[in-house]
């Protein structure tokens, strides 16, 4: 029992926040509000799944916010034309995929550090988005498209359904296929993985391309929900997705962790902002509260590791052959 409790700190933190909010706000534990929280976290979860994969390979993707802005802006302008929404959707995936592919090539082939490659990509794509939009905002999409973000299926908001599908697909991909195993292997030890015959460069390129596609999907959900596209969107997304991943227990060292933890990480972060709104926490305090909770979450995990005897991270990882 003790081991279980200490081994699932994230679950416990989420539970603790849920219980606290239930007592502090009468409207928190209602079906409507819970659906609301799930709907709000859908976007973050989709983005964080890609981020988690990048971090598992020992990388990072700082470009997701900007790529999301560019892909959704271009998609929006196509969505406004013609009779069908599909060209717009295709454009979004094409741009997301291309940006991800480029990131992957820069990292795997040109050997740029992931931080820098994706940071540069972020500047460039954001710049193009601004230039392309010329300061305008595109708004008012067809109902067929808006259904994706604002519609309901059997009483459940669409974003939640999309999130569930994406999560299931990637859970299977990561844990039941050889591709998933390779992603972990690259993160554990790239050189050894290469020596064992895996084309590690392809694995890395695949991860960033998938990430780009997920970003495009998130962008479509976003503009469908918001009913508008503008180049400024998503500036805080990279840090939010990284925070969700790390709070979820996937470390930067790579090779460990997974998207289940990330799901909890995103849940905790979304709960916090929902709770702060419900409790009427002053705008000025919000960033301080968020920062403190992130630190406390990780602190709780470290303490639990000490208690279960897993030991601090540095000592736990033994040198690989």
């Amino acid at each position: 029992m003790r081991r279980f409790l200490l081994g699932n700190t994230r679950l416990l933190i989420a539970l603790a926040i849920v219980i606290a909010l239930t007592f502090m706000s009468p409207v928190f534990l209602t079906k409507d509000n819970l659906l609301n929280v799930l709907r709000q976290m859908a976007l973050l979860v989709i983005l964080s799944i890609g981020m988690t994969m990048a971090i598992i390979t020992g990388g990072i993707d700082l470009s997701i916010g900007s790529v999301l802005a560019l892909s959704s802006c271009l998609a929006a302008s196509f969505l406004k034309r013609g009779d069908s929404m599909w060209p717009g959707v295709m454009v979004a995936f094409a741009i997301g995929g291309a940006a991800g592919l480029l990131n992957g090539i820069m990292i795997a082939k040109v050997k740029l550090p992931p931080f820098i490659a994706t940071y540069g990509m972020g500047w460039i794509t954001r710049g193009i988005a601004y230039v392309y939009m010329g300061g305008n905002i595109i708004y008012g999409f067809r109902p067929q498209f808006r259904f994706l973000g604002a519609g309901y299926l059997m009483g459940i908001p669409m974003p939640i359904i999309v999130m569930a599908c994406v999560f299931t697909a990637f859970y299977i991909f990561l844990h039941r296929t050889v591709y998933g195993r390779n992603i972990y292997a690259v993160g554990c030890n790239e050189a050894a993985t290469r020596l064992s015959g895996v084309r590690t460069d392809r694995v890395i390129i695949m991860v960033y391309t998938l990430n780009g596609l997920l970003v495009a999907l998130a962008g479509l959900l976003y503009i469908a929900r918001l009913n508008a596209a503008e180049p400024v969107i998503g500036e805080s997304f990279p840090l939010e997705a990284i925070a969700a991943t790390l709070v979820g227990g996937t470390p930067f060292t790579g090779g460990e962790g997974g998207i289940t933890g990330t799901l909890f990480g995103a849940f905790i972060l979304t709960l916090l902002s929902n709770g702060m709104n419900l409790l009427g926490v002053s705008s000025l305090w919000q960033s301080a509260v968020l920062g403190s909770v992130i630190v406390l979450a990780i602190l709780a995990e470290e303490v639990s590791k000490l208690l279960t005897g897993a030991g601090p991270r540095l000592k736990r990882i033994s040198p690989s052959p």
């Binding site: 209602t30 609301n36 709000q40 976003y222 929900r225 918001l226 902002s273 929902n274 709104n277 419900l278």
Partner: peptide
């Protein structure tokens, strides 16, 4: 986007 999120939460309360 931020306003939409904040408003959704506030409408609950």
């Amino acid at each position: 986007a931020e306003a939409m999120r904040v408003m959704e939460n506030l409408l609950q309360r």
